[in-house]
């Protein structure tokens, strides 16, 4: 019973966070919700606490927000807070442990909140005056990176794909124009035509996989393949909380819950008539990943994940 209350609480919490703070990333909102659960938790054993957190995560995944981001952020958050010294774990009073988890959680959130600034800082030298960039769909990290470059006095030319079926590129284009960045909205099908005059492709990611490849808005793969053929670098901007313990071999191996929103999947067995929301871009098409851990090659992602999860 109590778990049900926790679940509905978590959902409303997440929704209000995403609504009230338009710039917050899904991952950050998810771990903030988890921290809230920790704060109000009355658990007396680690198993109880685990059950509560499990319930909250599954509740959040049942919303229509990117389940890739929610899963990766929640896993990393839980891994990070539970790294407690041995003598603390042996303590009989669970309140102490809970306090420790709370503190660790706050530290983690602080770190995550800083990651976009760090990514902006790391990627700054890659943009020069009148660099032409092609970007796809709406990405908050890419937006913040471009803002940072713009603020430091670099005049960029950005081409944004419409990114159908939800035309999220339009939103991106509007935001960029508002910031005073020279932005052009282009057709999704114009990517091949435009590629030869681009300097680089810059995209965000819903999740960074163990392969070093990314899962992102559908169409990213076609752009990356096109860029590779024309020898243009593909840069991915992604916070490290987007690292997911998943190893897709090809498009058909992407987990179902990543491909379709929960509302689409609900109660349906045959999804063949639905448009997938994301595609998987293998590491061979990615030049560099800009993360808060630094600038990584795709190969380095696997190593970071081993460090995080062993």
């Amino acid at each position: 019973m109590e778990l049900e209350a926790l679940k509905s609480n978590a959902i409303s919490n997440l929704n209000s966070l995403m609504k009230n703070e338009p710039n917050i990333s899904t991952g950050l909102a998810a771990i903030k919700t988890l921290l809230k659960t920790l704060e109000i938790s009355k658990a007396t054993t680690a198993i109880e606490l685990d059950a509560e957190l499990d319930a909250v995560v599954s509740a959040m995944e049942s919303t229509d927000h990117s389940s890739t981001s929610i899963r990766s952020a929640s896993n990393l958050f839980r891994k990070f807070i539970s790294l407690a010294p041995a003598d603390l774990i042996d303590q009989p009073d669970f309140v102490n442990i809970l306090n420790f988890y709370n503190n660790r959680g706050r530290i983690f959130i602080e770190r995550v909140a800083r990651s976009r600034d760090l990514i902006g800082k790391f990627s700054r030298p890659f943009f020069a005056h009148s660099t032409r960039l092609l970007t796809h769909s709406y990405s908050k990290v890419v937006l913040s990176v471009l803002r940072k470059a713009q603020e430091s006095g670099v005049d960029l030319e950005v081409f944004v794909t419409e990114s159908q079926p939800n035309a999220s590129g339009k939103k991106m284009h509007e935001e960029l124009t508002k910031m005073g960045i020279n932005s052009t909205l282009v057709l999704d099908s114009a990517v091949g035509y435009l590629m030869e005059r681009m300097d680089a492709v810059i995209v965000g990611a819903e999740g960074v996989m163990e392969t070093g490849g990314i899962i992102n808005k559908i169409g990213t793969l076609s752009i990356a393949i096109c860029a590779k053929m024309m020898n243009k670098p593909v840069y991915v901007m992604a916070e490290s909380i987007k690292f997911v313990k998943e190893y897709p071999l090809n498009q058909s191996d992407i987990p179902e819950e990543f491909k379709y929103r929960t509302s689409v999947r609900a109660g349906r067995k045959d999804l063949s008539s639905e448009h997938p929301e994301v595609d998987y871009t293998p590491p061979s098409f990615i030049t560099l990943l800009f993360t808060d851990l630094g600038i990584l090659t795709p190969a380095a992602v696997g190593e970071e994940l081993i460090k995080l999860y062993t």
Partner: peptide, 22 residues
Amino acid sequence: ITAIVTDIRLLPPSSAPAVLKA
């Protein structure tokens, strides 16, 4: 090689040094 399947999990071949260390 698409992936190396180890008892830890699936890994890209480039992660071999990380496995050795771990």
